[in-house]
Computed example of a mutant assay.
Amino acid sequence: MSAPGRVVGAFAASHSPGITGWPERVAPDVRDTIEQAYREVAKRIADLQPDALVVVSVEHFTNFNLGNLPAFAIAAGDSYLGPVTAEMAEFVNVSQRNHPGAANLGRHLYKFALDSEFDPSLVGGGLDFDENFSVPLKHLDPETTYPLVPVIVNGVNPPWPTPKRCYDFGRMIRDGVAAQSEYQRVVVLATGGLSHWVGLPESGRINEEFDQDFIGRLTDGDAGRLTDYTREEIDAAGNGAHEIRTWLVAAGAAQTGFDVLAYAAVPEWLTGTAVAAARL
């Protein structure tokens, strides 16, 4: 009988389109620090030799809309196109590619979620990527090596799932991976955040105080502190800061603290930009 699968790594990174689309606008030392952190994560993932990546991000209305915006969604397709259009590919400077899907793992996690009292949407196929997945995967999986299970968390429009619900969803993913044996080694990758404002006059502002506080909680790894956020506290870091919910999913899957490999307030990318790795 095969051994149960396990989460062998968990990582989190920002996905601002500027990271790949206009890196030259940022001071070279800042850019090099961020890009080196991405390279380090890419190396660590390769060293872990995962059978699949569970990639957690938000939905920018590429696939869903305000009339159909689930709190959580799990995809179980055979492949995923990213970026979704040639125009998007040019905007983020990522060539269009088809990423392989870990369809069986996606279906398993969906069923396991239902059995665990979660009610995510199931996307059987046709989930397309924008900067949410395409920007980090350009750095972390440039050859589309790893089969993916994309997971969507609503971090763009209220009402949102609570921080604790997101953390618990990540813990459910960890347990779900352990409840199957087809995919022995699974890496969880979260993308989004940190502080930023989208489509508002404050766009370009960075709330470094919020970012550093969140980084401290992430480093510590205490679930209570990580999930003890009110809507108003996150709002103070911008409507885009609600994307930290994806990081909370990764933290729940890791069940340990993270090392932050890089952080910089980058107005040119409109985002408090960070890259982190769980101490697994």
Results as ranks from 00 to 15, higher is better:
residue 2 S to K: 12
residue 6 R to W: 00
residue 8 V to F: 02
residue 11 F to D: 00
residue 14 S to N: 06
residue 15 H to L: 12
residue 17 P to C: 09
residue 26 V to P: 05
residue 30 V to S: 05
residue 30 V to I: 15
residue 34 I to M: 10
residue 37 A to I: 14
residue 43 K to R: 15
residue 61 F to V: 05
residue 61 F to D: 09
residue 62 T to F: 01
residue 64 F to E: 01
residue 71 A to L: 12
residue 74 I to T: 08
residue 75 A to N: 09
residue 80 Y to S: 11
residue 81 L to M: 03
residue 82 G to E: 08
residue 84 V to C: 03
residue 89 A to P: 07
residue 93 N to H: 12
residue 93 N to T: 13
residue 96 Q to L: 04
residue 97 R to C: 06
residue 99 H to I: 08
residue 102 A to R: 02
residue 104 N to A: 15
residue 104 N to G: 12
residue 106 G to H: 04
residue 106 G to C: 09
residue 117 E to F: 06
residue 119 D to K: 14
residue 126 G to W: 09
residue 126 G to E: 07
residue 133 F to P: 00
residue 135 V to F: 07
residue 136 P to D: 11
residue 141 D to F: 01
residue 142 P to N: 08
residue 142 P to A: 11
residue 143 E to I: 00
residue 146 Y to D: 04
residue 147 P to G: 14
residue 149 V to L: 01
residue 152 I to L: 15
residue 153 V to T: 07
residue 155 G to K: 04
residue 167 Y to D: 00
residue 170 G to Q: 14
residue 172 M to K: 03
residue 173 I to M: 09
residue 173 I to S: 01
residue 175 D to V: 00
residue 177 V to I: 12
residue 179 A to K: 04
residue 180 Q to K: 12
residue 195 S to E: 12
residue 196 H to V: 13
residue 202 E to L: 08
residue 206 I to S: 05
residue 216 G to W: 12
residue 216 G to K: 14
residue 217 R to V: 06
residue 218 L to S: 09
residue 222 D to P: 03
residue 225 R to V: 07
residue 226 L to E: 08
residue 229 Y to R: 05
residue 229 Y to S: 02
residue 229 Y to T: 04
residue 235 D to E: 15
residue 238 G to Y: 04
residue 241 A to K: 07
residue 241 A to T: 14
residue 244 I to N: 06
residue 245 R to L: 13
residue 245 R to S: 08
residue 250 A to Q: 07
residue 253 A to S: 09
residue 254 A to T: 06
residue 254 A to E: 03
residue 258 F to L: 11
residue 259 D to H: 14
residue 260 V to R: 05
residue 260 V to Y: 05
residue 261 L to A: 05
residue 262 A to W: 03
residue 265 A to F: 10
residue 266 V to C: 11
residue 267 P to G: 08
residue 268 E to S: 03
residue 269 W to H: 10
residue 269 W to A: 00
residue 270 L to Q: 08
residue 271 T to A: 02
residue 274 A to T: 02
residue 277 A to N: 01
residue 279 R to M: 12
residue 280 L to E: 05
